[in-house]
């Protein structure tokens, strides 16, 4: 029988093909998709997240693990819907207007998936109104913004203003991050959370929606 812990091991090594094959095998054997998800894929991603936070692994390892996660999820997702598995929440994520940086935002998106969120990735150079429109459209609970330039950080404020002007500010958990962002900036613009790294962002978001 396919071992879900082995899925976790392969995922940590970034072996997308092995992950995909094992997930297929486990499903064919009739194993519970939720167990495959939680004890296989997500457990593996959690280990990577923790190591990343401790500086034991770096961006490339996280990205290859994420590729393996996606390979597994692609097979698993239809089954999860069949059995009515609910994601822990929905996250709308993007890099703010005027900023084209992609990688940090992608890391956060992957970590969010890793703790069980459904992630709607809006890409880079995202208009303030788009963050809000997409959050509303998808029934999200969390809005995540990334900025890598001190000159584009002010765009984060515009998103929060947009939420406030539509009377939606309290409906969403707003999180901010990126190299130049810090806690005092988050406080200043009225964001709910700032986290210094992708793994902490995912943990924080999960804690916030399950509170």
């Amino acid at each position: 029988m396919a071992d879900v812990h082995e899925i976790s091991e392969f995922l940590q090594k970034g072996r997308a093909k092995n992950v995909k094959a094992l997930v297929e095998e486990a499903l064919a054997e009739g194993q519970d998709p939720k167990v495959i998800l939680n004890e296989g894929l997500l457990a593996g991603m959690m280990v990577i997240g923790e190591k990343f936070k401790n500086n034991e692994v770096f961006v490339p390892e996280v990205l290859v693990a994420a590729r393996a996660l996606n390979a597994g999820l692609a097979i698993l997702e239809p089954k999860l819907i069949e059995v009515g598995n609910e994601p822990v929440g929905k996250v709308v994520i993007g890099t703010v207007k005027g900023d084209l940086h992609d990688i940090g935002k992608n890391l956060v998106a992957m970590m969010m998936k890793g703790v069980g969120f459904e992630v709607i990735d809006l890409g880079v150079d995202v208009e303030p109104a788009t963050f809000v429109d997409k959050a509303e459209e998808n029934g999200a609970n969390v809005i995540c913004m990334s900025a890598l330039l001190t000159t584009t950080m002010p765009s984060m404020q515009l998103v929060i203003d947009e939420l406030a002007s539509r009377g939606l500010r309290d409906k969403y958990i707003v999180m901010v991050g990126g190299a130049p962002v810090n806690q005092s900036f988050a406080d200043q613009i009225g964001a709910d959370y700032y986290t210094p790294d992708a793994a902490t962002a995912a943990e924080t978001a999960k804690a916030a929606v399950t509170k």
């Binding site: 961006v59 490339p60 990205l63 084209l100 940086h101 992609d102 990688i103 880079v124």
Partner: peptide
Amino acid sequence: VELSSDKDFNNFYTEFMF
């Protein structure tokens, strides 16, 4: 050539971090 959203750049960027 604008790099920050270039797919090839991002692939190279990850690859050459090792």
